[in-house]
Design a protein around this nucleic acid. Structure first.
Lengths: 108, 108
DNA sequence: AAAACATTTCGATAATAGTCGAAATGAACT
DNA sequence: AGTTCATTTCGACTATTATCGAAATGTTTT
């Protein structure tokens, strides 16, 4: 994780609809959700949602896979942890006070 | 932490200069840093830095205090944890895979 | 191969964010 | 009380982002 990719991830999350999408996907876990279903769940026009999904994917915090006719999106937990680690890096002059977020990885 | 305040915090961090400021302050710990010193450290015009500091403060992830003539800024660790907790809320259908970031608080 | 279906791209428009020099504010020291 | 010093506000400009209907793309199924 470098500064540029962190900015992209943060910027992707820093939006009403995108944050809602991401949190929905985080709750869904590995199964993810089809684009159309997300649009229905959040009451967004397909074209708008598509725009936002592209940003989340481009930022690397959401993954896409095809299943039948549908495109399924899911949250990328590894990327989420990497982002958190980056934000707390060398916290308090390297006094080792950054939380160990490593456990998220195995548990998901 | 609600959606709006999370968006503000994420948006505040989703910028080149502001992320650099925040990470610098995270490393500094409670001591923080005067506005002028931050500007010097990052090579930014005072007016630009002031604009960005205001956003970080408005977002609640950076605190301000006066010391002599200087205004000292420091990272708000509690807010940072709250943000992380919000992002991982009900992760994987409530299977309890969210990292416990609570430890950061006591250690800083 | 054609029809049905899910999703993305296009296009035009509106709104918000970032930049930095110069002037203004306001606290502190003498 | 006036001067100095640190920081913020102002103003004008440029660039980026968000919106959504309609058309296009590309997959699957019959």
């Amino acid at each position: 994780m470098n500064s540029d990719s962190a900015i992209q991830a943060l910027g992707a999350l820093a939006h009403d609809h995108r944050l809602a999408v991401f949190r929905l996907l985080v709750q869904r876990g590995r199964d993810g959700m089809a684009a159309g279903d997300i649009a229905k769940a959040l009451g967004l026009p397909n074209s708008s949602l598509s725009f936002h999904l592209a940003q989340l994917q481009q930022a690397g915090i959401v993954a896409q896979r095809r299943e039948g006719r549908s495109l399924i999106y899911s949250a990328d937990y590894d990327a989420m942890e990497a982002l958190m680690g980056f934000l707390t890096e060398n916290c308090c002059q390297g006094a080792g006070c950054a939380p160990s977020v490593a456990q998220t990885k195995e548990q998901c």
